[in-house]
């Protein structure tokens, strides 16, 4: 039986995937991809636990996560955007680098901190921002000149440059925004979903699920938010599926299997001009 309680619990579960996915979406609309979301989330999570543990404030921890994601995103900006090293390679390196640095930071002694209590004012603010972000991003992309520029850069980089658009600046800002979003998402995971704990492997592929959400949502903010929410709902429903007699290994694989199946469907649809990704991606 679908209840408001279940829908809200799913929203709380899906929030990190939605936040990270929307950040990645902004970068992908400029025609670049950062596969390092998982690493940025892990470092954000670890740094948030350290900051919360020292300050005693989960709100400060969220800010710490934001800074963590930003720091790792700077690596992407320097290597992939400035030095033009293959963005796929850089993204994957960032995954390993972010996780390695996160584990090393945690080993310095900060693995437990006060949790961000569900439905506390700070938590409600994060949830509100998670819901507001896709609408704000939609307005930015489709109802402002900045959005027109971003989409123009993602559609035809050379034409955008000839028109005098600041392609590199737009991509840098988008990449840093993506890092900030991923860092906050990681911090939220550690502070809320894992009750103020950091451990190795905490992000468990959710960064990849966020990247999958961008594709599943056809690079549209509202679509991406719905895709992220659906994945969060699937994760939340895992214990229910086990109680229904579904083997636990199948239940635990559900989000990954679902994303794989959805990718197959979406990849076929994406062959039609209406659903194409940004051309320079």
């Amino acid at each position: 039986m679908v209840s408001l309680e279940l829908l809200l619990a799913a929203l709380s579960m899906a929030a990190p995937i939605m936040i990270a996915a929307l950040g990645e979406l902004l970068l992908e609309r400029t025609g670049r991809v950062n596969l390092g979301v998982e690493g940025m989330m892990a470092f954000g999570a670890s740094l948030s636990i350290m900051v919360t543990s020292i300050s005693g404030s989960p709100a400060m921890g969220l800010l710490g996560g934001l800074v963590g994601g930003l720091i790792i995103a700077l690596v992407y900006v320097a290597a992939a955007l400035a030095l033009k090293i293959d963005q796929i390679v850089v993204g994957l390196l960032i995954v390993f680098l972010g996780i390695g640095l996160a584990d090393l930071l945690a080993a310095a002694g900060h693995t437990i901190a006060p949790a961000l209590t569900p439905w506390s004012p700070t938590h409600v603010t994060v949830i509100f921002l998670t819901l507001a972000a896709p609408i704000a991003l939609w307005i930015l992309l489709y109802r402002t000149w900045a959005g027109v520029e971003i989409r123009a850069i993602g559609t035809d980089e050379l034409a955008a440059r000839e028109r005098g658009l600041r392609v590199d600046l737009a991509r840098t800002i988008a990449a840093l925004a993506g890092g900030v979003a991923a860092g906050v998402a990681g911090a939220y995971m550690a502070l809320t979903l894992y009750n103020g704990k950091y451990f190795s492997g905490l992000t468990a592929g959710w960064g990849w699920l966020a990247i999958g959400s961008v594709i599943l949502g056809f690079w549209n903010p509202i679509g991406v938010a719905i895709a992220g929410y659906s994945i969060g709902l699937l994760i939340l429903l895992r214990p229910y599926t086990i109680s229904l007699g579904v083997p636990s290994y199948i239940a635990h694989s559900t989000p990954y299997i679902a994303v794989l199946i959805a990718l197959i469907i979406v990849s076929r649809l994406a062959r039609s001009p209406r659903w194409k990704p940004p051309k320079t991606l």
């Binding site: 290597a79 030095l83 390196l93 960032i94 390993f96 996780i99 390695g100 090393l104 945690a106 080993a107």
Partner: peptide
């Protein structure tokens, strides 16, 4: 007390550094 996750991070750092140097 160094975590095992450090290994992949260190290796990624080395590869990133090598690619930067080649560029």
């Amino acid at each position: 007390g160094v975590p095992l996750g450090y290994v992949l991070g260190a290796q990624a750092l080395i590869v990133l550094s090598a690619l930067t140097a080649v560029t």
